[in-house]
Amino acid sequence: MNGKILVIIDHFKGEALPASWEAVGAASELARSGGGQIAVLVLGAESKPLAEQVFQFGVQEAYYCDDPTLTDYRPSPYAAVVASVARKLSAAVLLFPTTVRGRELAALSAVELGGGVMPDVTELEVSDGKILATRPVYAGKLLARVVCEATPAVITTRVRAFKKPAADPAHGGEPVRVEAVIPEEDIRVKVAGYTRSETGVSLSDANVIISGGRGVSNNPELSPPAGMDEKQAEIWRAQQGFKMIGELAALLGAAVGASRAAVDAGYIPYEHQVGQTGKIVSPDLYIACGISGAIQHLAGMRSSKVIVAINKDPEAPIFKLARFGVVGDIYKIVPALTDEFHKRLGK
């Protein structure tokens, strides 16, 4: 490959999203097999300290832009700086993590630079000097090989598909400041504020996910407070169920997931949904509690390393994907699991 590999770090107020380092890892893999130097770009407030950190991952050059117009993320001024740095370096490849900002900036940079965009890839190889990417389609029911005929190839790397590179603290360097491109008066979007979500561990980054399905509302031993109608009582029961799942999740440092059925029934907010129209996840351990395993759900978690299924129905399709299965009542099994993990992990 001729030309540099430019990796764009995604962060919020100076805190890098973990997938950013995985994109640096993907760049190292590409550099090893196809050659090319790695440059990193960090944009926004607190970008300089982050840019200083990247050298330890074997990166040759780092750039940052902390112009006031970039304090809050906005697509157009960010994309303009990415494009200007990419042009200056004659970058052959742009790598972003598959985050909301990463995917958006990748799409914009590809148009801006006359390249092609290949979002959410899980594998990269160099063949005949071109990058061949593999990406899941139809929520992972199929895989596609994709190739970009134009330069640069703009890629976003799927969260958890690439390894964070090993750090060598002895390897340092001085990042270079670059200028913003679009003045404030030409930026039409103004940021009025933020609301932070309270979801705890993020589903996409989680090593362990404990998920609940419709089955979480079926505890016959719970009697809801007086005065609730049937639907309210069902939701109340389900919330007690998710509380129980949450206790196990807290112990294991896990994220809480849910099936679409549980979200649609109003048991838990949408941001917890795993599946084709929710989040696609691939944790090391996925424990499905009271989830039967509709095809949309399986598509969203099938690439998890170890799947454990607990369900009353021995015929539930989820068992076909599970490494370990328990036919039983989640209200008895999950608390017993929490106690046992407590003992074994010494927490």
Partner: peptide
């Protein structure tokens, strides 16, 4: 966004 919502 991953960390919450931005109001624009």
């Amino acid at each position: 966004f991953e960390e919450g919502r931005q109001i624009v």
